[in-house]
Design a protein around this nucleic acid. Sequence first.
DNA 1: AACGCCAAATAGAACGATTCTAATCTTATC
DNA 2: GATAAGATTAGAATCGTTCTATTTGGCGTT
Lengths: 140, 140
Amino acid sequence: MERDETYEHAQKLLKMTGLRPTRQRLGLAHLLFDQGNRHVTAEGLHSEACKSGLSVSLATVYNTLHQFMEAGLLNQVNLEGARTYFDTNLEPHGHYYFADRRELMDVPAPGFDKTALPAPPEGTQITRVDVIVTLHDVPK
Amino acid sequence: MERDETYEHAQKLLKMTGLRPTRQRLGLAHLLFDQGNRHVTAEGLHSEACKSGLSVSLATVYNTLHQFMEAGLLNQVNLEGARTYFDTNLEPHGHYYFADRRELMDVPAPGFDKTALPAPPEGTQITRVDVIVTLHDVPK
DNA sequence: AACGCCAAATAGAACGATTCTAATCTTATC
DNA sequence: GATAAGATTAGAATCGTTCTATTTGGCGTT
């Protein structure tokens, strides 16, 4: 019995967004959304895709990640060192950044209340709130 | 009566840190610390220095900003787009990021409690907490 | 004031992550 | 299966930043 490669779930997501279900987008959607919440970089996802046998260029990975962002399927996380991470968890939450390992983890309880923020200055509106807790290994 | 260019305050700061009071470091310290809290980028500070008649290279601005960080005179703020800002406000606080203007402002009341964060995972310690509230102009 | 040592400053090359460009290939439609 | 619009591609270009090798400058000693 063969492995099912129809990517039903990914198909459905793409249909929702109106993006054409190309081989690359399907494969990337599958990697991103069919295994629980993830934090990926473009480079990371690209090499993962290549390993899994999906032929896709780095430029397309960038394009696709941005399109998924636009479509509201992903969130961006910005942190030190120019590296951008993409997060499949759409709930409001914070992040632990394990600096020594360059890895991200959701903070279960962000410990801050978005609604408790002071009203933003006149003529502006809040578009995102990022809470990043940077961690280093304790030297022993 | 001539303008006083001895930069007393800057001199004092450099003495405290043990960094040699070179012309460049004095000038930059003066720009950074003698006019209230500031948020600067390396590029921004460099062009400001040039305009004010201080001859300094971009590399030196980067070096100096990092040395001031090491010395605890500055904090770094990381946000989208690979651009790093340096902040002279050393108190714990959050930031508004005016995305349309690419400008930073301190958030008077951060609206979160650092102590309310869950204990970090075993073997790690919190080295920084960044709270960034991104704002966009309201289209009217 | 001249000497010399070493830290600091410099220009420009190198770098990593990302975006752009122009050509080629796919997909959906007729 | 021809067509047009959209998607993918390799590689060049860009941005902010760091590195490198060389020159300059601060400062304690003669």
